[in-house]
Computed example of a mutant assay.
Amino acid sequence: MQAMNNQKTEKLNRFTQFPNLVELLLSKKLVFSDPSHWEDQNDIASIKFYETQKHCKLRLLCFCQAEETLHHWKTYAAGPYGCCIEFDKLTLLQDFQKFSNVLTQEVTYKRIKDLSTQGNTIKIDQYPFLKRKPYECDSEFRIIWRKTDAVDNEPTEVDLNLNCINRITLNSQIPTIFVHLLKKLIKDSNLEINVNISTIYKNTTWINKLKNLNHPPIDTCT
């Protein structure tokens, strides 16, 4: 595995949907995605250029190193069935060390003007880990699988040690029955994974503290 890791965080968050989460837990596999279907055409362009130059195809796993924000939920885990899987970074990356065709690295964020002033210093190997500045809030980390002899549409899957999952956070609007089903699946699988409900839309502690703040009396008009 070729790695250029910055260990500033000990966790990797993957925002996804509940059906994908269940499939991951049942299959014990991580599925790399085909970037050609992404919405960000700028990202696709840099990956395609790398593929052309290196004569290969890339499949990616994308993670967020930043704390959860409304942007992450709205963009990557929209709707009541959105969820966030928190992985232990070191444990997860150790599982990929046996693969020589896997690349791992944090994403670097550049402005358009940076390409003009720094273009000659940006190497081709950096292209799959290069994004525009507006995405910097993601603090993204990527695991990339380089395919040189496989069929383009063949899914790339790797076995996953589920013990590298620290916690799962669900959208606060998910029906309660799915919370119970998830906890039962985790228990039946003899796993120790915390299941939380996101408080990004409603945090009871925040609300109660606001209510209990001491304010001077307000004069009322009579």
Rank of each mutant, 00 (worst) to 15 (best):
A78W: 07
G79Y: 06
G79Q: 07
P80M: 10
G82H: 01
G82N: 01
C83K: 00
C84I: 06
I85K: 00
I85W: 03
I85G: 01
I85H: 02
E86N: 04
E86M: 06
D88S: 06
T91K: 13
T91M: 14
T91A: 14
L92P: 00
F96T: 01
Q97T: 13
K98I: 08
F99D: 02
S100P: 07
L103H: 02
E106I: 10
E106L: 10
Y109F: 09
Y109C: 10
K110V: 09
R111N: 13
I112K: 14
K113M: 11
K113L: 11
K113G: 13
L115T: 12
S116C: 12
S116W: 10
T117C: 07
N120Q: 14
T121N: 14
I122P: 04
I122W: 03
I122A: 05
I122L: 09
K123P: 06
K123A: 12
I124C: 11
I124G: 09
D125R: 06
D125W: 04
Q126K: 14
Y127W: 08
F129P: 03
K131Q: 05
R132A: 12
K133Q: 15
K133D: 14
K133V: 14
P134M: 07
Y135Q: 09
E136C: 09
E136G: 07
C137T: 11
S139E: 14
E140T: 03
F141G: 01
R142I: 03
I143G: 01
I144P: 01
W145S: 00
W145V: 03
R146E: 15
R146Q: 15
R146V: 15
R146A: 08
K147N: 13
T148Q: 12
T148P: 06
D149R: 11
D149A: 12
V151W: 10
V151I: 15
V151G: 08
V151A: 15
D152E: 15
N153K: 13
N153A: 12
P155D: 05
P155C: 05
P155S: 05
L160R: 01
L160Q: 00
L160H: 02
N161A: 06
N163D: 04
N163W: 01
R167Q: 15
T169E: 03
L170Y: 01
N171F: 04
N171I: 05
Q173I: 10
I174C: 05
T176R: 13
V179Y: 11
V179H: 14
L181F: 09
L182H: 02
K184S: 13
K184W: 07
L185W: 02
I186C: 07
I186A: 05
K187H: 08
K187I: 04
D188I: 06
